[in-house]
Design a binder for these strands. Sequence first.
DNA 1: TTTCACTTTAGAATAATTATAAACTAGATT
DNA 2: AATCTAGTTTATAATTATTCTAAAGTGAAA
Lengths: 135, 135
Amino acid sequence: MKTIDILKKLRSSRLRPTKQRVEIAKFLFEREKTFHFTVESLNKLLTKKSNSKIALATIYNTVHAFKAAGHLSEVEVRGNKTYFDTNVSNHHHFYDSETSELIDIDANDIIIQKLPKAPNGKKIKNVEVFINLKN
Amino acid sequence: MKTIDILKKLRSSRLRPTKQRVEIAKFLFEREKTFHFTVESLNKLLTKKSNSKIALATIYNTVHAFKAAGHLSEVEVRGNKTYFDTNVSNHHHFYDSETSELIDIDANDIIIQKLPKAPNGKKIKNVEVFINLKN
DNA sequence: TTTCACTTTAGAATAATTATAAACTAGATT
DNA sequence: AATCTAGTTTATAATTATTCTAAAGTGAAA
């Protein structure tokens, strides 16, 4: 994703393209593959990459703002880790607890034949399939 | 589940049936339906029920010991809540974020027709389906 | 360029969980 | 039954993840 598109992405979601947001957005979205990270890991990677330190609170704010705008999705796994995913399309996940690694699964690679009805008065918002791995 | 069975359950998993463990186990397992709870909610319920206060750390220890012994399973949902489930059979969940309520889905009520292959060198440990609800 | 609502920031506050170390106890040993 | 000991509980401290606060900074509209 190009810098100009990053700026568009921010503006289109009413997020002022501040220095910090642009830096974080470039880091997250200027890549081919989808990227999974925690706030902690993102903070470390950003610190390593550039010499300008972004406050941890800003990283929290920004990641949540991106999530609210639909630019990131959130995935939770065993052990209280919260990952964010630059892939916001409908998809599923492998989780390798040995390496704490999340791997995307395309929505088309899982077909569910039978699904229960939602409880009375409720509707199904979405279905997440989580495949835990072992060696 | 009867008290004598609770004692058996504890002994069979090499957990000494201390006063606290028996009290917690009776509270959790002497019921018909499966029960979902967080450590916090369990603590409140136990405090309300009996007048003998069990230390919060003991509740953490005990719940994790029960989980390690296979008497409880753990379910994580959006928003960093960790629920425990007295139903340890293979099953799935509805999650109602309006009410923060978890509802069990029998394993037979979901049939998955197509599943991706596990990444190289890995095997599938288990598949969890999580159905998020809306109104 | 001035203005102001939105942002960032450092640090404090909060919440959930785990660690610590002393006191306690179930159950084996005597 | 009294003694012993590894396992357990407890209060409290420590840790970790996240959010709050309020002051300083800044994009962009006028």
